[in-house]
């Protein structure tokens, strides 16, 4: 665990730095892909900004929903207390859904109709950004695994975690890289995949996340019916992804598998 980078006497939060790096690298790679497809960087920047903005809001909203009591939140709002805005914490799925909504809004604002092309350029870069973010999780001491003392066990005493734990963050990062490579491979085989890549990402990440949840050991795991909140969301996302793939295949039978 290494929560801060010490540069020129400044202590810079490692997790935030890796998150920012993930955004910058993701956008840069998306631009490199988009150039080959004929898109323009200003539209990409606008869409990315809208997606990132609503992703931050969505991630925070979902965190508040799972962490705060609704009555308490309403009471705070009623008193004019907005301190919940400064509460630290977000949930990835809230960010994902917010990001998708933000991207759609961005295409609307930019009056860009070729959104299939932009989606094709952007989607394989998302899991790569997630992988960088997961390294940030390891540095920051969050999203850790179950208690474990074997090879690769990590000590997160600075985060208040007793003993050593399984490096679930690194497994998640590796899974995200493999998902990105899988999407890039499919893109090479089907150059006109367009928005189908998004459906594949939704289904693929749902499977990855469902499995990874079994490796997690951090305490904020809302559980219902034996599955965590994220696993339930993953099941829904998998159903949505597969449903969209089937719908798209029926709409364009000549596109093949």
């Amino acid at each position: 665990m290494h929560p801060y980078f010490h540069i020129f006497g400044l202590s810079i939060p490692a997790y935030g730095t890796m998150m920012a790096l993930a955004l910058v690298v993701g956008c840069a790679l998306a631009w490199l892909r988009l150039r080959k497809l004929g898109g323009d960087w200003e539209t990409l920047l606008l869409v990315a900004a809208c997606a990132i903005g609503l992703a931050l809001v969505g991630a925070r909203l979902l965190y508040l929903l799972v962490s705060y009591d609704a009555g308490r939140l309403l009471a705070e709002l009623g008193r004019g207390d907005f301190s919940f805005l400064s509460a630290e914490g977000q949930v990835f799925y809230g960010g994902l859904f917010g990001g998708i909504a933000g991207a759609l809004l961005g295409f609307r604002i930019a009056k860009e109709r070729r959104w299939g092309m932009y989606v094709q350029a952007i989607v394989p870069c998302i899991p790569l950004g997630q992988a960088i973010g997961r390294v940030g999780c390891l540095l920051g001491g969050c999203c850790y695994g179950f208690p474990y003392e074997g090879f690769g066990a990590v000590c997160l005493a600075e985060a208040g975690v007793p003993g050593t734990v399984f490096p679930a963050q690194l497994v998640a990062a590796l899974a995200d890289v493999l998902l990105s490579l899988g999407l890039l491979w499919y893109d090479r085989r089907r150059p006109r995949a367009g928005v189908r890549l998004l459906y594949l990402y939704l289904a693929g990440y749902a499977v990855v996340r469902f499995g990874l949840e079994f490796l997690r050991g951090d305490l904020v795991r809302g559980v219902a019916g034996g599955l965590s909140t994220s696993q339930w969301i993953s099941l829904g996302m998998l159903a949505a992804g597969l449903g969209l793939l089937l719908w798209e295949r029926r709409k364009r039978p000549e596109a093949g598998a």
Partner: peptide
């Protein structure tokens, strides 16, 4: 993003 976004689980882990 760098300075003020933190992982929900890190905060919850400390809590």
């Amino acid at each position: 993003v760098v300075l003020y976004i933190a992982c929900a689980a890190a905060v919850a882990a400390v809590q």
